[in-house]
Nucleic acid binder design. Structure first.
Lengths: 153, 153
DNA sequence: AACCTGGCTTGTGAATTGCATAGTTAGGTG
DNA sequence: CACCTAACTATGCAATTCACAAGCCAGGTT
């Protein structure tokens, strides 16, 4: 059982290249509140440092530190920009790797919107056709699947 | 900007019913390593306490404590069972709420399998047609979408 | 009754996270 | 040059998580 390996690694060795479990590895990168909120914002189009701070409500210290970690983890890249009469500053944009987190961020949001009382969910739609967007589980033949219809090996 | 509210709540008040951000709320329930690993196992069919322990590699203390929290959070329920000649024991099964985490768990796993080196991904397939299963982002008209094709309000 | 043992409960310590706060740095302008 | 200030860096603190280990409890059997 390959997944048992993840437990053989103590928590302090979580960064070991020996971690085999994909979920465990994803959580190591975006499993903190600050990381997931920042990735949420990046996926929703936020670019500037002060917007990340304002929209997540995290402190500047945490935003700076975590954005740096997300850049190191290759989820974001810094891009210089300059507004007239101001210094050169840096914004943060997604890498391909960062973009690939969209299904996870969407589905985490969907779960909270459905099951956590008092949440205010954002609305997502397809720019071209206007239909609402969400994350779904399906097979390659486009069958929409419930948990019981899935086999795991 | 409704999402700024989540930051107004200090971290120590994260359990406040004032949290409005769906993702933040989901992470409060399953944002720990132990919770996500246990939910992974429950979604993949694990039922017995000692199997949760063996398959996650977490300690019994953590499994017991976290399973209890997941029951309180209405993601799992305890079910008594008894094998011949043994005591009554309890297994853990999914609630509807727990089942609804499947897209999130799948997509977190997909991301790790694709982007984290050295991971060993499980294979999921549709029991009926045998086609591989995954989490995707699409609109109600079944268009498969990239990040740039989604508008947020 | 005693015994066994699976599933906890409890306590300790290390690591991590994020808040609050003070301070620093560097890219501009005047 | 001085000044401004956005984006950090650094520090102290509290809370949380999880590993480790000891101990407890309760449902069975004998």
């Amino acid at each position: 059982m390959a997944f048992a390996l993840s437990g053989v690694m103590r928590r302090r060795a979580r960064t070991s290249p020996g971690d085999r479990c994909p979920i465990d590895r994803t959580m190591q990168v975006v499993g903190t509140r600050s990381a997931i909120l920042l990735m949420r914002e990046a996926l929703f189009g936020t670019f500037k440092f002060d917007d990340f701070v304002a929209r997540t409500g995290l402190t500047e210290a945490v935003v700076a530190s975590r954005l740096r970690a997300l850049v190191v983890a290759d989820l974001l890249v810094r891009e210089p920009y300059q507004e007239p009469g101001q210094r050169t500053r840096h914004g943060y944009t997604l890498t391909d790797s960062g973009r690939d987190l969209m299904p996870a961020v969407l589905s985490l949001g969907q779960w909270g919107a459905k099951h956590a009382p008092g949440t205010i969910a954002r609305q997502f739609s397809h720019a071209d056709c206007g239909e609402p967007v969400r994350a779904v589980v399906e097979c390659a033949a486009h069958h929409r699947l419930a948990v019981e219809e899935i086999t795991v090996e």
